[in-house]
Nucleic acid binder design. Structure first.
Ligand SMILES: [Zn+2]
Ligand SMILES: [Zn+2]
Ligand SMILES: [Zn+2]
Ligand SMILES: [Zn+2]
Lengths: 144, 144
DNA sequence: TCGATAGCGTAATGTCATAACATATCGCCT
DNA sequence: AGGCGATATGTTATGACATTACGCTATCGA
């Protein structure tokens, strides 16, 4: 572990390609999750033309932990949890507001532990976990 | 609350229409989740012709707690947890095997409680929760 | 210099889901 | 019986999301 061989289990983030950079920036600038086609539309002026260009970039960003896919929305957000990349915080959970569309990423170690425990007892080899909460955020409730 | 006004918060399950019955039976007979189009194909001989007929039936079945949508799969399963309909067990979680495709429905009250607690602290009005685990089931691991 | 790996561009296609409109059926009140 | 609202249905067309297939290019180390 002595010489510079990269962090051992998680790519260093910053060797993004042009398309990946464009997509990540678009996600970063967005207030709410974007679908792949939303992203594509925003990047037409930068030369992107086909959905696949976006999907390929997203795939890498997600691999690197820089973005997440929201399954219940068929849309994508950039990662908001500094610890998430280093996976110190366990499985990420997402609270999605049906009012403003904003997404709050958080992690609860106890939840992670309980699900891992269930997997352990059951013999289920856990690879990936999706936790998505739908509802209305505090701000939208006040604005009601 | 004295006279017969139905159970107060959860419909009695058995007043399904023909289409709902057909779809539910199809899901019950399936070993793995089915997409709406899978269901449609299986029900062509029974007179179903359009996706919407299936989606409408699914919508009601899900409302009644007789079926669930798996967001990470865009597919549907029938509910496997007797308690689920009576909502005694809290939020349902699903373990989806990438080997055999089978789905295991379970509920962990502690997980439910932790997510509810997060929502409480944050002021998030929780309406619906999705928890989906991807991996390989014990049987598929043995068969490896 | 060669081959392997990764990324890129494009077209076509596949899969999932809903809008819009027209009918039909049932419970209920008059 | 007649009228009404609520719910379910059937059908067509369309929209939204995602992948397959193919060929080209850049990079890097043997
Ligand atoms: Zn994250
Ligand atoms: Zn909100
Ligand atoms: Zn259930
Ligand atoms: Zn399996």
């Amino acid at each position: 572990m002595a010489h510079s061989h990269e962090a051992h289990h998680h790519e260093r983030p910053r060797d993004l390609t042009r398309n990946q950079e464009l997509v990540l920036t678009t996600l970063n600038n967005a207030e709410a999750p974007l679908s792949a086609y939303d992203i594509l539309d925003k990047l037409r002026d930068d030369g992107l033309r086909a959905p696949l260009q976006v999907y390929r970039a997203l795939e890498k960003l997600i691999e690197h932990g820089l973005a997440h896919r929201l399954e219940s929305l068929n849309a994508f957000v950039c990662c908001a949890d500094a610890n998430c990349h280093g996976r110190a915080s366990g499985t990420a959970a997402f609270a999605i507001c049906s009012g403003c569309g904003r997404v709050d990423e958080f992690a609860d170690p106890e939840v992670t532990a309980r699900l891992a425990a269930w997997a352990g007892e059951t013999g289920f080899a856990l690879e990936r976990t999706t936790i998505e909460l739908r509802g209305r955020c505090a701000e939208c409730r006040k604005a009601a």
